[in-house]
Amino acid sequence: MTTVSLTVNGQSVTADVDPRTLLVQFLRDNLRLTGTHVGCDTSQCGACVVHLNGQAVKSCTTLAVQANASVITTIEGISQGGELHPMQAAFREHHGLQCGYCTPGMIMSAIDIVNRKGNTLDEQTIRAELEGNLCRCTGYHNIVKAVAAGAQGMAQTPLQQAAE
């Protein structure tokens, strides 16, 4: 067993884990944060995307012990005081989800795209930046619209961005 200490959605967490525990397993099984999903075992689908020190990573391809001393944000940690994060609101408003399974990873990736590429995103940029996220339901059409709108929404609520 190896001890890990990290901050998850603003809460300090310390636990002894089997070193082979993946970050996603730690989040889902130890912390019961089941919003982060597993959709593949080859690091491609992106259902497991969380933010590690502010950057989007695949939590299925990161050991929990590698995340020691880091700050993790999951889908459960981005809305504040009952208000949806602008990207969450945009996915709802633009029907950017159907079964909802890829959605947490999509939203965490989308926020990361905005953090890196800014609030005005053209369609081609969004499609290229979603390379690491698979959706089987939506055909991406409404996800692309949602990301563009969510990016604009994030510009209008700077507090939300600062929250991370």
Partner: peptide, 21 residues
């Protein structure tokens, strides 16, 4: 109409089979 189920899905509160222990 915007979907009623989306509130739980966009906040990570959906309950899929693997979420049941």
């Amino acid at each position: 109409v915007r979907r009623k189920e989306d509130q739980r899905f966009v906040t990570g509160q959906g309950r899929y089979v693997d979420d049941f222990n």
